[in-house]
């Protein structure tokens, strides 16, 4: 009964009154000319840290739709946290970001959200660089859920979800009927309607994550960015939460630690190591014993059953 309203399967249900026009699922971008195993939009070949000084990848993603990172880099204190990563999620898919601690997953998500500016490369939304899209306009399209949400303010769950309407509101204006509808829908979809009046501080970790996701949904985004949302949750809540996320009618980029959960819920995976993309593709393509050993330094067996691959780690 804890299970959130997973009624909304990968449904065509778009929040009403959203900007989200029923954009016919963009045909799986004929991204790259039939090239050698290169994945969409020139993510690095599965080769080890290759492609660096590389060829000038298609400049100016003219006509590109959705959120897209083009060879983005971020340097902090002289260290490259993210180094030339390209990521172009297709409309509606769930992309998993994998990689060890400190591999740059969080930073890449913050670059995608426009909260950090890249020190190299560019993040575009429908072909336009984020700074030109503008902060508010970006926030109406792209919603982000941080790893840890903390506040000292006394807020109800409804207050938290209503924060998602801020980018849609103008100064001096009160909440509109559309705001109320979006908040109600977000609460419903995350199974929090009953708890709307409850204080944020009384929620469990899983419920807080769900409240943050509800807040993100109230933004009526078409792109949703999640940073390890299953951290610190027990297995039931991990599955609940990922069921919820995978069922949302939005394009999702989600950083995950658990390879099996990533295999179960993601359409595609991007693996980072030391800030660089080292593999990209479907879970079956990416999750090989060889890659797992190279990236995480552990030995594993991968069973390809029906459906998604299953990873089993081996003792040293």
């Amino acid at each position: 009964m804890r299970r959130p309203g997973t009624g909304a399967r990968p449904g065509p249900v778009a929040p009403p009154g959203t900007g989200a026009p029923p954009e016919p699922a963009v045909p799986p971008e004929p991204a790259v000319p039939p090239g050698p195993g290169t994945a969409a939009a020139g993510v690095l070949p599965t080769g080890h840290g290759a492609a660096d000084g590389g060829e000038p990848a298609e400049e100016g993603p003219a006509g590109a739709t959705g959120l897209r990172a083009e060879r983005v880099g971020r340097r902090t204190g002289g260290r490259l946290i993210v180094d030339g990563v390209t990521l172009a999620p297709r409309t509606g898919e769930t992309v998993g970001l994998l990689g060890p601690n400190g591999s740059g997953k969080s930073t890449l998500l913050r670059l995608l959200a426009g909260v950090l500016a890249p020190s190299a490369g560019v993040v575009t939304l429908d072909g336009l660089p984020l700074p030109r899209v503008g902060r508010r306009a970006t926030a109406r399209r792209v919603a982000a859920v941080e790893q840890h949400a903390h506040t000292q303010t006394e807020l109800t769950v409804r207050d938290v979800v209503a924060l998602g309407r801020i980018p849609h509101r103008r100064p001096w204006s009160a909440a509109s009927a559309a705001d109320a509808r979006a908040v109600a829908l977000a609460l419903d979809r995350t199974g929090l309607t009953d708890r709307a009046g409850q204080s944020w501080h009384t929620l469990s970790g899983g419920e807080r994550q769900r409240a943050q996701i509800a807040r993100a949904l109230a933004q009526e985004p078409r792109e949703l960015l999640l940073d390890e949302p299953t951290n610190h949750l027990d297995i039931q809540h991990q599955l609940d939460l990922l069921d919820l996320v995978a069922g949302l009618p939005v394009t999702t980029v989600i950083a995950l630690h658990d390879l099996n959960l990533a295999a179960m819920y993601c359409d595609r995976l991007l693996v980072l190591r030391a800030g660089r993309a080292v593999a990209e593709g479907t879970p079956a393509e990416v999750l090989t014993p060889d890659l797992i050993e190279r990236v995480y330094g552990v030995r594993a067996e991968v069973t390809h059953g029906p459906g998604h691959p299953v990873v089993r780690f081996l003792r040293r």
């Binding site: 913050r110 959200a113 426009g114 909260v115 902060r135 508010r136 306009a137 970006t138 926030a139 109406r140 792209v142 919603a143 982000a144 941080e146 949400a149 903390h150 506040t151 303010t153 807020l155 938290v160 924060l163 998602g164 801020i166 980018p167 933004q219």
Partner: peptide, 11 residues
């Protein structure tokens, strides 16, 4: 309420 980065991501 949830910090400056959260505020930034809200536009």
């Amino acid at each position: 309420a949830f910090g400056e980065e959260a505020a930034a991501s809200l536009g």
